[in-house]
Design a protein around this nucleic acid. Sequence first.
DNA 1: GTCTATATGAAGATAGAC
DNA 2: GTCTATCTTCATATAGAC
Lengths: 218, 218
Amino acid sequence: MAISSIDSKIEASPREPLLSKKARAVLDAARDIFLANGFAGATTDMIQQAAGVSKSTMYAHYPNKEALFAAVVEAECEQFLKTVRKPKLTGERLADILNSMAQAYLEIVLSQDGLALYRMIVAEAPRFPELGRRFYLAGPATINGIVAERLEIAASKGEMDLGGMGVDSAAALFVNMVRGEAQMQCLMHPDAPASAAQRDQWAKDAITAFLRAFQKEH
Amino acid sequence: MAISSIDSKIEASPREPLLSKKARAVLDAARDIFLANGFAGATTDMIQQAAGVSKSTMYAHYPNKEALFAAVVEAECEQFLKTVRKPKLTGERLADILNSMAQAYLEIVLSQDGLALYRMIVAEAPRFPELGRRFYLAGPATINGIVAERLEIAASKGEMDLGGMGVDSAAALFVNMVRGEAQMQCLMHPDAPASAAQRDQWAKDAITAFLRAFQKEH
DNA sequence: GTCTATATGAAGATAGAC
DNA sequence: GTCTATCTTCATATAGAC
C-alpha cells in the first residue's frame, strides 16, 4: 500500500479517530445520562435519544448497557487523570505549593462533573469492581502520588520533619484533610453548592494543620 | 374509656408498636434490598418477596417506592446515630481518647452496612436532598461534634494549642484524616476488605499527625 | 388487612429493510 | 451503518375477593 493512499485518511482524522462520529455521539450522550442518573437510573432510550441516533446504531457500537457504562467510566477516568496532572505548581515555599495543589484538586473534586462521577462510581463499584479500582488509580491514588512527590522534595531539602512517617502516608493525610469535609458536605447538600470562600477555608485549615504537624521549625 | 380496657394493648406491645408485624417485615426487607441494590436497582417485587408479603400488603403500608425508601433511610440514620453515640470513651490521655473514638468510628463506617448506606445516600442525594441532609446530620456532623466536645475539654485543660483554629475545624480535620483514606479504599475495592491491621494503621497515622499539629508540648 | 390476579406502561434488546 | 418497527420481559401500581 502506497503511503500517499493513506495520507488523506490521516489528514482527515489527525488524531483520535478510533470512534466514528455516531459512536462518539453515543458515548457523549451516555456520559451525560449516566452521570445524571446513575447506571440503573439511566435508560438506553434516554441515551439513544440524547445522542440523536436510533437504538440499533447504539447497539452496533456497544453490545449492551454494561459495556457502554464501562466505556463512559473509562473515558472519564482518562479525562480525570489529565486534569489532575495538568496544573503547574507555582510557588517555592512549601505552603504555596500545598495551596496550589489543594486549590486545583478541590476545583476538580467539587465540580458538578467531579461529584457526579464520584456518586456513580461509589454506587456501582460493587457491581463493577474493575471500575472502582480504575477510578481509585486515576483519582485518589494519583493525587496522593503527586503530593508525595512534592513532599519528598521538601523532605530532602530539610524543610520537613516526618518523624518516621512515610511520605505516602503523610501525603494521604494531607489530601484527605483537603478533600474530606469539602466533598462530604457538597455530596450531602447538592442544592447548596459551596462558596469559593468556604472552599478556601477548607484548604487553608488543611494546610495549617499539615504544616504544624510536619514542617520543620526554622 | 377504662384504663383496664387498653392495658392489654399496652402489654401486648410494650414498646415500639408504631409498626405492625407485616409493616416491620416490609421495612426490614426493604432495608436489605435497597442497601444491596440502591434505589433504582431495587424493585418492589424483590422487597415484597423478601418480606414474604403480597404486593398489596406492601402498598397498604407505604404508598409507593419513594416513601418506602425514605422510611428506610430515616430508620438507618436513627440507628446510625445510636451506634455513633454509644461507645464509651476510655482512657484519660488525649491520645487514648482519640484512639478510642477513631476505632469506634471506623468500625461503623467500614462495616458492610456502613459502606452500603453511604453508597446509597451518595448516589441518591440529588434526587432526595432531604435524605442527604438527614444523613449528614446523623453521621458526619454527629461524629465531628463528639470529637469537638472532647477537644474542648482537652483545650480547657491546657493540653492543646489550637493556634487560633476553632475546635470544630480541628475536629473535622481529625475525623477526615481518620475516615478519608480508609473509606475511599474500602469503597473502591469492595472485593478486598481492609484488614484490622490496616485499619489500625490508618487510625494511628491520623492520631500521630493530629497530635503533632495540636498537642501542646509538655 | 391481606391475598391473587391483572392492568398498564416501559425497559433492554433484536429483526429486517434500506 | 443506520433506520423503523417490534419482541419479550419485567416494573409499578391497582382491582376485587376473602
